[in-house]
Computed example of a mutant assay.
Amino acid sequence: MDDAVLEVENLTRRFGPVVANDQVSLRVRAGDVVGLLGHNGAGKTTLVSQIVGLLRPDAGSIRVAGADAVADPAGARRRVALQAQAQAPLDGLTPRAAIEIAGRLRGMSRADARAAARALADELDIGEWLDRRATPGGGLSGGVRRLTAFAMAAVAPVPLVVLDEPTNDVDAARRRRLWDAVRRLGDAGAGVLLVTHNVVEAERVVDELVVLDRGRVVAAGSPGRLRGTGVGDGPGDGTGDGGLRLELSLSPGGADPSAPPAQAPVPSPAACGPVGGCC
């Protein structure tokens, strides 16, 4: 595919007798956000490590924006920005400095890197911590460190952005901002590979989902297709177009919505029929 910024074909990686990736194939096109889902140990981070050249596959191929990541891992790394699952080592730096350094390493001018850092801080709502220095075990919360690491990956335009569990430790309000920023990266033309467990939140920003199970791709497609929309036997079966899903977000310590009411509700006059009788 001419617009693919990531092409993985029949990728296999073993650790002794354990097959971490078993003939994995996937594509990410420019402008698309692809979610990579799977249980712990499904092989997601192993796959990411090979894409960015930290691990060499036993078989298969990886191309990042035309570069062969197996034969030329350094060339592939120049075309991809990674937010790793582990926290970025920020101790001794402020978020502003860390983001600007990441931009400068990507070839941005000092002025452009400074402006991009400020814009990302505003977008993610971390401005009040922008000049607070991270210290070992303190200075910045885990959520601010995670958002700073995302900004470091997003500060400069690159063909491919890989985000490995970017919302870990991030509060609900700023998670929404982060998801909006992920979607913006795709809309701006980058291909985004998003590794996440947060399916419900990520669903609104991804164009395609790829599901790994024990190292193999077991499903791939749009969120709607993987939910079964339009594929079931008909209305009311929970999988067809007539399926309905209700999601509730409850406050800790609040009332149990499944508990029976203390007394039967009394219908209002507006709910009664034209002759005054209620159904």
Rank of each mutant, 00 (worst) to 15 (best):
M1A: 14
D3L: 04
V5H: 09
E7R: 12
V8Y: 13
V8S: 12
A20T: 08
N21Q: 07
N21V: 08
D22C: 05
L26T: 10
V33T: 14
V34D: 05
L37I: 13
H39T: 12
A42K: 00
A42N: 00
K44I: 03
T45H: 07
S49K: 13
V52L: 03
G53I: 02
D58L: 02
G60W: 02
S61H: 12
S61G: 12
V64A: 12
G66N: 09
D68K: 04
D68V: 03
A69M: 08
V70K: 06
V70P: 06
V70N: 11
P73S: 10
A76T: 08
A76H: 03
Q83C: 11
Q83E: 03
A84M: 02
A86T: 08
A88L: 05
D91G: 11
P95T: 09
A97W: 00
A98C: 07
E100D: 02
I101E: 14
L105H: 14
R110M: 06
R114Y: 01
A115Q: 12
L120K: 05
D122A: 15
E123G: 06
I126R: 06
I126L: 12
G127N: 05
W129Y: 15
L130Q: 11
A134L: 01
L140F: 08
G142H: 03
G143D: 01
R145T: 15
M152H: 08
A154P: 02
A154Q: 01
V158D: 11
P159C: 12
D164P: 01
D164G: 04
E165K: 02
T167D: 15
A172R: 02
A172W: 00
A172E: 10
A173Y: 05
R174S: 14
R175G: 11
R176T: 13
R177M: 14
W179A: 10
W179N: 13
A181L: 15
V182K: 01
R183Q: 14
R184Q: 13
R184H: 12
D187G: 13
D187Y: 01
A188E: 15
A188F: 00
G189D: 09
G191W: 00
G191S: 10
V192D: 08
V192N: 07
L193R: 02
T196N: 07
V199A: 14
E201W: 08
E203G: 07
R204N: 11
V205L: 00
V205G: 00
V205E: 00
E208Y: 06
E208V: 12
V210T: 12
V210I: 07
D213T: 06
V217K: 01
V218M: 04
A220D: 06
P223C: 08
P223L: 04
P223A: 06
G224H: 08
L226C: 11
R227T: 09
G228I: 05
G228W: 03
G230P: 02
G232E: 07
D237I: 02
G238N: 09
G238M: 03
T239A: 14
T239F: 13
T239H: 13
G240D: 15
D241H: 14
L244A: 15
L244V: 15
L246S: 09
L246V: 15
L246D: 09
E247I: 11
S249R: 13
S249W: 10
S251I: 05
S251E: 15
A255H: 08
D256M: 02
S258P: 00
V266K: 07
V266F: 05
P267E: 12
S268G: 14
P269Y: 09
A271F: 03
C272H: 09
C278P: 04
